[in-house]
């Protein structure tokens, strides 16, 4: 399409991108900590955590979104009580729900890539966004988290999967709300693309001899 070809290419990450990554990592943290609905028989309460995981890549795109989720996970593992229920540290990684934590990075990547694709072809469409959130924020997360839990608990994927259905309705609601938020934000505030614009001249040169790696955080 001529429209996409006319797009200015962006490369690397600017200082503003670093700030966006940090602020959205902080948003995920705030969402994990502030709202918690305890569940009977479950040590992990329902929180807005996964909504944060879906929001960051929906708004920031794959690169900044995935890095925001990675920053959030890194700080949780480093010992800040950021995961649902005020947990944190490497104990979480040794425990049965480690797979979910690992899956968030991939969920962000999938949501970010697909949302970028949707935006390149036009604007944020609610139902497409919803589908993307369900695919990345539910299918990917459960596909990694549930089998992992099954292996750790040694009782097969089925039992773990059944237990996890408690969270499913909440996650569906979060996917809907995330798509609503994203659709509204994109109308309210233009979020600049990641990286610095590369001028046409530099672009053609670097396309031929792309030896210098883009600078990433």
């Amino acid at each position: 399409m001529p429209r996409t070809r006319k797009h200015v290419r962006h490369r690397g990450l600017t200082a503003r991108d670093l700030a966006l990554i940090a602020v959205f990592a902080a948003l995920i943290a705030a969402m994990s900590v502030t709202v918690a609905i305890p569940l009977p028989f479950s040590p992990v309460p329902i929180t807005l955590q996964t909504m944060g995981i879906m929001l960051a890549p929906s708004l920031l795109g794959w690169k900044r979104g995935t890095l925001a989720v990675a920053a959030f996970v890194a700080l949780g593992l480093a010992g800040l009580p950021l995961f649902a229920g005020g947990r944190g540290g490497f104990g979480v990684l040794a425990g049965p729900s480690a797979g979910f934590i690992v899956s968030w990075v991939f969920a962000a990547l999938v949501i970010g890539l697909l949302t970028d694709l949707m935006l390149r072809n036009g604007r944020y469409v609610f139902w497409q966004g919803l589908l993307i959130n369900v695919l990345g924020g539910i299918v990917v997360i459960y596909a990694i988290g549930v089998p992992w839990m099954g292996v750790v608990l040694g009782d097969g994927v089925l039992a773990a999967g059944t237990a996890m259905t408690v969270f499913l309705p909440g996650d569906l609601v979060k996917a809907v709300v995330t798509a609503l938020i994203a659709a509204t934000v994109f109308r309210a505030y233009p979020i600049p693309p990641a990286g610095r614009p590369v001028t046409d001249h530099v672009d053609t040169v670097s396309a031929a001899t792309d030896t210098e790696p883009g600078k990433n955080a």
């Binding site: 670093l18 990554i21 940090a22 602020v23 902080a26 948003l27 943290a29 700080l75 800040l80 990433n216």
Partner: peptide, 22 residues
């Protein structure tokens, strides 16, 4: 292509941003 200084900066920025977001 990743810069460890920038990794450290983002992590510190996140810690400082959590109370602001809250």
């Amino acid at each position: 292509g990743a810069d460890p200084d920038r990794v450290a900066l983002v992590l510190a920025l996140t810690i400082r941003s959590i109370p602001m977001v809250a």
